[in-house]
Structure formats: C-alpha cells, structure tokens
C-alpha cells in the first residue's frame, strides 16, 4: 500500500504550519513548523500527550483558530488548492469534524432527521424529500434504525449519539473527516464499535480520516499511518505498524514501552517509564524539545532543533542513518 501511496497525490498537505498563542505579554508556539500529508482513503492518527498540539492542528485545518491563537506561518493545501483561514465553503462541504462530546454537534431541541436534512441541503442541491431519504440511508449506514429519524438526541445513548454525529459529518459527502478524540467519552465496548464504523466508512467510501487521540491502543487498532507529536512538533511519522514496532524516535520508543499491555504476566513487571513530563508552552527547551527527558541526548540535541530525517523521525541520532537501540 505504501508504494501506491507515494504515487497518488495527497488529499491534504500541510507544510510548515505554525500556530502561536498570544498570552498577555508573550507569544508562545503551540504548533511549531508542522508538515505532513494525508492521502486519499487512509486513516492518519495524530497522537500525543495533552498539550502536544494535536487538537490545535485539527482546528487549524478546519479554520477554527480564533484569538488568542493565530496561524503565524505555513500553508494548508487541500485537493490541490491552497485554503486560507476564510475558506469556510471548502471546510463545511469537503472536510467534516467529529468531536469528543456528541452533544457539542447536536442541537438538543431538534429531531435528528431535521438536523441531517439541513446538513445535507446546505451542501448538496436536493429537494426536501430526497434529502429525507438520504438522511435515512445515512442513519442505516452508521448503524441506526432509520425509523428513529424523528427522535430527539437525548433519547439516544452516548455511543448512539456519536453515530448520529458521524452521520451528520457524512451528510455533505466530505472527502476528509477530522475526528478529535471521538471515543474518549465512551465505554470500551462502544468505543470498539465506533472505531470499526470509522474504519468501514473509510474503506467503503474512500473517505480519509484524521484520528486525533492520546490512546496508543486506538492508534494501533485503527490507523494506517501515525504522526507522533511532542510539544507542538512532529517527532515521528510513518506506517503505524512500523512506528509502533520499530520506533525511530526515543520519545515514540518510550511512549510505546510505557503503554500498558494486556498480558497474562505483566503485573509481575514494571512498566518502562520516561522521566519527567512534557514541558509547558512557556518552558519548551532549546534544541530538541525532548532532550531533557532523552537518554540518548548529545550536545547537538541541546542546541539545534532536529529536522525530519528520512521523512520519518525528527531526531539527531538519525543524522547519519544510524539506529537508536
């Protein structure tokens, strides 16, 4: 799959994106020179700890960056066209968003059918009756009985609501869906169903999905490729299996090792732990942001910010093509 991907044009290309936070007297870099591509029909995971800038990247793509945040540099190219922060038309129809809390996207006072019909007719020229039929099809597709089209959001459970939100996101026939922690508020059994649904939609419709999460398990089970963010910077990007099985960045390595596994005798062992915690925006160290927590850090790491080597990992240890051990 990776070979064919290199030949197809990317659906979304983000290059050198920086988002700044204006905080009283200071200007802080919340997202720092981030570049990555999303190809048609793939699920890209954005993973990182809280404050790594993953949600902010999603917001930047959707044009939801509001003061005190602002985009200081970089460009976002979608489907061959550069989109600036005002191009709401592309964003509404071609890019959809799914949030952690389904109640953010649903109006509690309106029937889900009406909300779906409205979402369809805003973007697609269609009669009301046609739109209503399409709404039923969408509900069936996300696994909700179409007969419930006239129900109100509060009559659904949390997982069912998230399905309605996904149907709503699919209404304008988007080519990209950004899902920001879509299953964090749900129970594990429901989470598994929603992730399966996202995978199926991606496979059947060819919709690309950017899945933002902090959960390495979700990344492992859902995504094709993964981008690991640390302190607003890209640490590592690549095929999910490759990144998780043979991480090239010490942070990814630590993150993978620190994630608990379901294992018969893991209670006898200690987990691997990375010392310290991710720095606040105010205190991002010079050079590689990870160097104070890194066992392999050398003099260069402390001074200079590493570029992305081999389109894979931003770590000075890969400069000469060597491997970390």
């Amino acid at each position: 799959m990776s070979k064919t991907r290199e030949m197809t044009a990317p659906l979304l290309e983000i290059s050198h994106l920086s988002v700044m936070l204006k905080k009283r007297r200071d200007r802080l870099k919340a997202v720092d020179d981030l570049s990555f591509k999303v190809y048609p029909g793939e699920i890209l995971g954005l993973v990182g700890e809280s404050g790594a800038g993953k949600s902010m990247t999603g917001s930047a793509i959707l044009g939801l960056i509001d003061p005190p945040l602002y985009i200081s540099s970089g460009e976002i190219i979608f489907d061959g066209n550069r989109i600036d922060q005002n191009a709401s038309s592309i964003r509404g129809s071609k890019i959809s968003m799914i949030f952690q809390d389904p109640l953010v996207s649903l109006n509690p006072l309106r029937k889900i059918g009406d909300q779906l019909v409205e979402a369809i007719r805003t973007h697609i020229n269609m009669s009301k009756a046609e739109a209503f039929d399409r709404a039923k099809t969408l509900l069936a597709e996300v696994g909700i009985d179409p007969r419930r089209i006239n129900a109100y959001p509060h009559t659904f459970s949390g997982g069912m609501r998230q399905r309605v939100v996904i149907a709503l996101a699919l209404a304008p026939e988007p080519s990209l869906i950004i899902a920001d922690e879509p299953t964090t508020a749900l129970d594990v059994s429901v989470q598994a169903q929603i992730l399966d649904l996202l995978k199926r939609l991606c496979r059947e419709r060819g919709t690309s999905i950017i899945l933002i999460t902090h959960d390495m398990g979700v990344i492992a089970e859902t995504t094709d490729r993964v981008a690991v963010l640390y302190a607003g910077r890209l640490a590592e990007i690549g095929e999910t299996a490759s990144v998780l099985n043979s991480p090239r960045h010490p942070y990814t390595k630590g993150l993978v090792a620190a994630t608990p596994r379901i294992d018969a005798d893991s209670y006898k062992k200690k987990l691997f732990q990375i010392p310290g915690a991710m720095p606040d925006l105010e205190q991002i160290p010079q050079g590689c942001a990870f160097h104070p927590r890194c066992d392999f850090a050398n003099a260069q790491c402390k001074i200079q910010q590493p570029p992305l080597f081999e389109d894979r990992s931003a770590c000075w240890l890969l400069k000469d093509g060597s491997e970390i051990s």
Binding site: S189, A192, G217, A220, E221, V256
Partner: peptide, 15 residues
C-alpha cells in the same frame, strides 16, 4: 470476552 476483545491494545498490531 467482549471486554477483552474490545479493549484497544497496543500489542494487537500486526506486522
């Protein structure tokens, strides 16, 4: 069984 199969597990990744 259901809980175990639904739990997202980093160890589940196939190479």
């Amino acid at each position: 069984k259901m809980l175990l199969s639904s739990a997202p597990d980093i160890g589940s990744i196939k190479i």
